[in-house]
């Protein structure tokens, strides 16, 4: 067994949901989601069609805070704008997989990226959902990931529904003109799946060293617990090598897993390395 960190296992598990069908739109630079798409495209899903910023049909890129956008264009076959993208991908039912995260998520597949507390006078005003409200409903698969699985994030009912899967079961989705596909939630503890409207999320797997009761105790909504819960697959040496050496050598994915005071110095460290590499080209 190779040593790995939890963000690496999560990246590999999200990557497993990326396939060769449909289009993945990446939106803003969310390192774990980006790393997952790149890993999939370098391994089992070479034909995955990626759109990042306005770069359509991207090659896999190395992740960096300042370079993700520029690199997206370097290997892309086409440049669009936001309206062409939503008309040609989201609304045209070509959206395959998009991984989102949110401040709150509930057992119906709803996300809250708007407000904690009253909407008009919130305790915490959150960033807003951008296209997430439509994306999680329209895309074939809804993937949600959470680096900190706890009952304040995975709640019984979100305080405000920024967006939701709306129809969950394959038949209900097809009848509504939507692509059939599940909701897959990947956290630092487990993988949860929902594929029927009237059934709760079930625990698909727990990560190595995590017991089922810990997952149940840390989830604010009802879970179905199968008699046998398998263990989530660990990253392979090949996956770890790609992630560490080719996709994310600066360590951007880990940034979202660093908390408190260390967070800023961790970010500064990455940015220093990015600066130094660029500055070396100038002198």
């Amino acid at each position: 067994m190779t040593d790995y960190e939890i963000h690496e296992l999560m990246t590999c598990r999200v990557a497993a949901e990326v396939d060769n069908d449909g289009v993945t739109v990446m939106g803003s630079f969310t390192p774990l989601a980006y790393a997952s798409y790149m890993l999939a495209k370098l391994t089992h899903a070479k034909d995955a069609y990626l759109v990042g910023f306005d770069a359509v049909g991207m090659a896999p890129v190395q992740l960096s805070f300042t370079g993700a956008e520029a690199s997206a264009y370097k290997g892309a076959v086409c440049r669009w704008g936001m309206l062409t993208e939503i008309n040609s991908i989201h609304l045209a039912n070509h959206g395959g997989v998009e991984a989102v995260s949110s401040a709150q998520f509930d057992g119906s597949g709803a996300i809250n990226l708007s407000a904690i507390g009253p909407f008009e006078a919130p305790k915490v005003r959150l960033p807003g959902g951008a296209g997430a409200a439509e994306v999680i409903k329209m895309y074939r698969k809804m993937i949600a990931y959470f680096g900190n699985h706890n009952p304040r994030t995975l709640v019984d009912k979100v305080q405000f529904v920024t967006g939701t899967r709306w129809k969950v079961g394959d038949r209900a989705r097809e009848e509504a003109g939507l692509q059939p596909g599940p909701i897959v939630v990947v956290t630092n503890l487990a993988v949860l799946v929902k594929d029927e409207d009237d059934r709760p999320f079930r625990i698909e797997s727990v990560h190595p060293g995590v017991d089922v009761q810990t997952v149940v105790d840390n989830t604010g909504f009802e879970l179905e617990v199968p008699a046998e819960v398998p263990t989530t697959a660990e990253p392979t040496p090949q996956q770890l090598d790609l992630l560490r050496n080719r996709i994310d050598p600066f360590g951007t994915v880990k940034f979202d897993f660093v908390s408190g005071k260390e967070r800023l110095s961790y970010l500064r460290g990455i940015l220093d390395a990015e600066w130094d590499r660029a500055a070396a080209r100038v002198s």
């Binding site: 790149m38 495209k41 370098l42 070479k46 090659a59 896999p60 890129v61 190395q62 960096s64 300042t66 370079g67 993700a68 956008e69 520029a70 690199s71 370097k74 290997g75 080719r246 996709i247 990015e274 600066w275 590499r277 660029a278 500055a279 080209r281 100038v282």
Partner: peptide
């Protein structure tokens, strides 16, 4: 200003990955 420009040049596609 030159380094901000060089950050664009330094951004990498993962070579050899595309067929």
């Amino acid at each position: 200003d030159k380094v901000l420009g060089a950050l664009v040049d330094a951004a990498e596609v993962i070579e050899g990955a595309q067929a």
